[in-house]
Simulated assay, not measured.
Amino acid sequence: MASPKEIIQRRASRVRRQLKAVAGDRPRLSVHRSSKNIYAQVIDDAHGHTIASASTLEVDLKGKLKTGADSEAAALIGKLVAERAVKAGIKEVVFDRGAYIYHGRVKALAEAAREAGLSF
């Protein structure tokens, strides 16, 4: 029987495999959430580098947030990473939710990124 860690890795790789099939040349908006923070980055897989990133661990955000683990923080990170991506010239991405379901903090981040100018 597979361990919980292997099951999560398998789910994330399944999502990523489906994204690569439909992505074309669009970069990937990848989300990682922990119990205390949330992280987002726009990754160019063709060249293997990060175009824009944001997380709740950034110094200028620490004072604004009550906690890094709620939907309000996720929405702020989504808006911030979208603004940085648009500033870098990226408007269309594919959304990589990883092994997480599209609900709660992940959904809040995605909706805030859409409102801030990213298309996916």
Rank of each mutant, 00 (worst) to 15 (best):
A21D: 12
G104I: 07
L29G: 10
E72C: 05
G48K: 05
A54R: 05
E92A: 02
S35F: 14
H49S: 12
I7K: 14
S30T: 12
F120E: 01
A112S: 07
R33N: 11
G89L: 10
V15H: 10
E83Q: 15
Q9G: 08
S55P: 07
M1F: 11
A52C: 04
T50M: 05
G89E: 10
K5N: 11
V22W: 05
K62S: 07
V94H: 03
A85V: 06
Q18I: 06
A46D: 14
P27K: 01
K62P: 02
S34Q: 12
V15A: 11
F95E: 05
R84F: 08
K79N: 13
Q41P: 04
G89Q: 10
Y102R: 02
A112R: 04
L29Q: 10
K87E: 15
V106I: 14
L109Y: 06
P27V: 00
R16C: 01
L61Y: 13
A116F: 05
I51W: 01
A85T: 05
P4S: 01
L76S: 00
L109H: 06
I43G: 04
A21I: 09
V31D: 07
K20D: 07
D45P: 06
Q41G: 03
R105C: 03
S35G: 15
H32S: 09
K36H: 11
A74R: 01
L29Y: 11
M1H: 12
Q18F: 01
V94C: 02
L61C: 12
S3Y: 11
A99P: 09
R105T: 07
S71E: 14
A69G: 06
P27F: 03
D96N: 11
T56Y: 00
V86C: 13
D60N: 12
K64S: 12
A110W: 06
R10S: 14
R97F: 06
A2C: 09
G68S: 08
R33W: 02
V81E: 03
G48T: 04
L118Q: 01
Y100A: 09
A113I: 02
V106C: 00
D96H: 08
I51L: 13
R97N: 07
F120H: 04
G104M: 00
S3E: 13
I101T: 14
G89M: 10
V59W: 11
I101D: 12
L19T: 00
H47S: 14
M1Q: 12
A110M: 03
K20S: 08
V31Y: 09
I51N: 04
E92V: 02
Q9Y: 04
A113Y: 06
R97G: 09
L61Q: 12
I51S: 00
V31G: 07
L65S: 07
S53W: 10
I7M: 12
A2L: 15
G63W: 03
E72Y: 11
L57G: 13
L29V: 10
V81A: 03
V93H: 08
K79W: 02
T56D: 08
L80E: 11
N37C: 00
G24H: 07
A2F: 15
V86Y: 00
A74I: 01
A12C: 02
V42S: 06
V81F: 00
T67A: 12
K64T: 09
E92H: 12
I7H: 06
V93N: 04
A46L: 13
S35A: 15
V94F: 06
R33F: 04
K91P: 00
G89T: 11
H103P: 06
A54G: 08
